[in-house]
């Protein structure tokens, strides 16, 4: 449990608009161990979402390195990073980001499609994932007909379907009421007990005191304030 799974070294992310340059992330150094739960806390604009994106391989740093599970992903070409992401990382987004015109079942299928597995195996994986997120009973419902809380659970099922080691969440409770937020944290607890590494970027105070072992990393203005 003490081996680092995510290592961020001297990370910078700058955006250049013409002559002006905005530094969104400045000199980030971070080490996350396997099975840890990290909360990146900060208001919007603090850079936490960008950091999360870079960790997921969705964005590329301007400088620095990101090593995930011993693989340096900063300069990996698209083909490799996509495969990596499909296998090792599950993502949960702020706005759920489901395909509204598809059913719950089909939505959870999406990450599995490019992996080249056959339909039967896929079915198994989807079913166990839906069960874990407590949304099996709605598997044939169209995503557009779900409530906010249900959509979030579908998003969780989708993030878990390929059994990734790392779960990244971007403001997962921003569009949920208190009741659903608590349910969400319960699921996170379940995942933590399964040994998954979890990183949550949020400014929801609910995450300050999680019912399980976690590390809060405050961020502001693109820098980490203190790293305990």
């Amino acid at each position: 449990m003490m081996s680092p799974i995510i290592v961020v070294e001297r990370l910078y992310r700058k955006f250049t608009l013409g002559v002006e340059s905005i530094t969104v992330l400045e000199d980030i150094d971070l080490t996350i161990d396997r099975g840890e739960c990290i909360v990146l806390k900060g208001i919007s604009g603090s850079g936490k979402t960008t950091l999360l994106s870079i960790m997921a391989g969705l964005d590329k740093p301007t400088e620095g390195n990101v090593i995930i599970d011993s693989e340096s992903i900063a300069k990996l070409p698209d083909l490799h990073i996509s495969k990596f992401r499909a296998k090792k990382i599950g993502m949960i987004f702020q706005h759920f980001n489901l395909l509204e015109h598809l059913s719950v079942w089909d939505n959870v299928l999406v990450p599995l499609v490019p992996m080249g597995i056959d339909m039967d195996r896929a079915r198994e994986m989807i079913e166990s994932s839906l069960a874990l997120a407590n949304i099996s009973h709605k598997s044939d419902t169209l995503a557009s007909r779900l409530s906010g809380g249900e959509k979030q659970r579908v998003a969780i099922a989708r993030a878990l379907v390929s059994n990734p080691e790392i779960i990244l969440c971007d403001e997962p409770t921003a569009n949920l009421d208190l009741g659903n937020s608590v349910k969400f944290i319960e699921i996170l607890q379940k995942l933590h007990s399964l040994g998954k590494t979890i990183v949550v970027a949020t400014h929801d105070p609910l995450f300050d005191n999680l019912p399980f072992e976690s590390r809060v990393i405050p961020m502001a203005n693109g820098k980490i304030e203190t790293d305990i």
Partner: peptide, 12 residues
């Protein structure tokens, strides 16, 4: 964009 974020490569 979503598909890509979920692990679909450009080739896919």
């Amino acid at each position: 964009g979503l598909l890509r974020a979920l692990g679909w490569s450009i080739s896919d």
